[in-house]
Design a binder for these strands. Structure first.
Lengths: 342, 342
DNA sequence: GCAGGGGTGGAAACCGGTTGCCACTTCTTG
DNA sequence: CAAGAAGTGGCAACCGGTTTCCACCCCTGC
């Protein structure tokens, strides 16, 4: 007789227990299945009962339990965004745009940062993967094989990296790099240096390769400078390496390293742009305020995130494959370039 | 006989269906409940069966289905972070620290931004609330009543705002403001202006009030300047308002507005700090690179987020109420202040 | 007058875990 | 040596929805 609840609700949520479709069903004199249909199969029921049930649901403040829905359908209406590390302020844009694109289609965003590298990141990805319907990977340290394995389990998009067999969103580097090299060429630079990013970064290698081919086409040379170990003194170390190449202009993997390098230049009395021209990849907030303001090749990370999320949701909703909109880099001329020192 | 699956799995996830505890149970010759106990009630079973089950689970690659667990327990192991708008780069710190604190305790982070204001934000909050175990509100446009209503449903923490009856995390403004005013006082400033933030911002009002009382104690006056409508020209408008007050130094609600104002000063030929001293609340990335570099009162948003998440999880885990660690603002002297013009 | 078809709504299985209760052993202990 | 306690593990209910059948009703059309 006595209905004893076997499973105790957690005491975390104070207040009365949430109202379920069973409550709504009882109150409107129909069966639970009918309530379910009224709420998400418009037209399946007679207009009058549908309306009545809707009103009752509204009146008693019914709210769907996403977990309960997820169990039978297997769909959580959630997308995951995995970042290896997001110290770089540009990621704010990425996170925002992915979040907005997701919520605009009724999806929630689960954000995960795997500060650790290697296996832990894979572990994080695996865990994340069974809480979400689809995953977006950005700035990942995972290798291609790991990414492919993940992609077999759930729809997945990679941002800023190309992995064979896995859909990805990558901007076209050529326009930005061409404009930058044209500009540097007109100023008279012939010998350039590229300060690379982390060795695991596909994008860093990609930039180096585009840089090299475009520079070659213009009769310029590019020396690749490995990124020094990060931390205090990294900027100064990078500066020494760059000077050792004899380059008159440097292209820097990202805005953070560029501001760091700029600081090192000031500390070492190296004039920018009088003695060394600087062009940074990525237009971080603040790049316009440095002195001199940084000339950059802007990567549209916001658009990349939006695009990735948009296409991911399209896949999740079984829509005809959303055609990829092409995304491009853009050269933004500010003040950190000048003709080489005679 | 024929076991027909009534509920079709979505086709989204390719590959074989995930392995469940039923599979593990069958493979190790025990009942599903025993598997459940083996996996999350260490010691409840005999050591040998527990070990055997664990090995089988590991071997077949069993992964818990979080949704299935959430249904009976009511716990999703997820915390929500709701931001009204996160155009401000300082929020990256907040998001990261909340995310880290959450994942370090085994919780996922669901991030939501409600760009709209008013009711839509409340709607977002309500929806978010039944996907998570607890919620953190930052920079919210919600009113106190709405926040209290939310707090009745699930554990909730507010960041950078005080709401009666709802736990919150707010830094102590006094140290930062005292140091700033002492500094300005020594330089000889007597008449200050406070460029306020959005009228809905509790923190803006709080800063104004602390500013006023501390200034009064030093024989200084503070004129409150309302924030002009944002957009191009906002900085110039703010500058005119500030000049109209006759103040020789201005304190600005946040770093974004401060860099904007700084740009307007440069545009209008107003020397900073020679003609107008500037102090910004919030130490945004880039504030150190402006010219002159911005002197700021730093708000430890990262620590605030960490603290909020830490205490929230403590509540969710029914731990003895974690004692709040006091958080304080800090004055960072850079280059945007000088003695008043004669 | 009756077969057939569309419109409505209910019963019940199921998703994959968790947990209260109980039965059966095995070990203490008086 | 009997009684009670502790240790093990199975049964089955339950969380809150979704979805497949199916039954029933009413309306057509021949």
């Amino acid at each position: 007789m006595a209905e004893k609840r076997q499973v105790a609700r957690t005491s975390a949520g104070r207040g009365q227990p949430p109202v379920t479709i069973y409550d709504v069903a009882r109150l409107s004199g129909v069966s639970p299945s009918t309530v379910s249909r009224a709420l998400n199969m418009p037209g399946r029921l007679s207009a009058t009962t549908e309306k009545r049930i809707r009103e009752v649901a509204e009146a008693v403040g019914y709210r769907l339990n996403p977990m309960a829905r997820a169990l039978p359908t297997g769909r959580t209406h959630t997308v995951g965004l995995l970042l290896a590390e997001m110290t770089n302020p540009v990621y704010l844009d990425l996170v925002r745009s992915v979040g907005r694109a997701a919520t605009s289609r009724g999806y929630n965003l689960i954000l995960a940062e795997s500060v650790e590298s290697g296996d832990p990141e894979n572990e994080t990805a695996q865990r994340l993967l069974n809480s979400v319907d689809g995953l977006i990977l950005a700035s990942t340290g995972l290798n291609n094989a790991q990414i492919c394995t993940l992609a077999e389990r759930k729809p997945l998009f990679v941002v800023n990296r190309k992995v064979r067999g896995v859909p990805g969103v990558v901007p076209d580097l050529v326009p930005g790099i061409r404009a930058a090299l044209d500009h540097l060429g007109e100023l008279g630079h012939r010998s350039l240096a590229y300060l690379a990013g982390p060795p695991t970064s596909w994008m860093s290698r990609h930039r180096a390769s585009v840089l090299e081919s475009e520079a070659g086409a213009r009769g310029m040379t590019v020396s690749k400078v490995k990124r020094p170990v990060q931390g205090p003194g990294a900027g100064a170390a990078a500066l020494r390496e760059i000077e050792a190449t004899g380059a008159s202009a440097a292209l820097v993997f990202n805005g953070l390293m560029a501001t760091d390098l700029l600081g090192a230049c000031q500390g070492a009395g190296v004039g920018v742009p009088s003695e060394l021209s600087l062009v940074a990849f990525e237009d971080i907030f603040g790049a316009a305020f440095t002195s001199p303001p940084l000339t950059v090749i802007r990567t549209p990370l916001g658009s990349l995130g939006h695009e990735a999320a948009r296409r991911l949701v399209a896949v999740l909703e079984n829509e005809v494959d959303a055609d990829a909109t092409p995304l491009s880099t853009e050269f933004v001329l500010r003040g950190s370039t000048a003709p080489p020192r005679s």
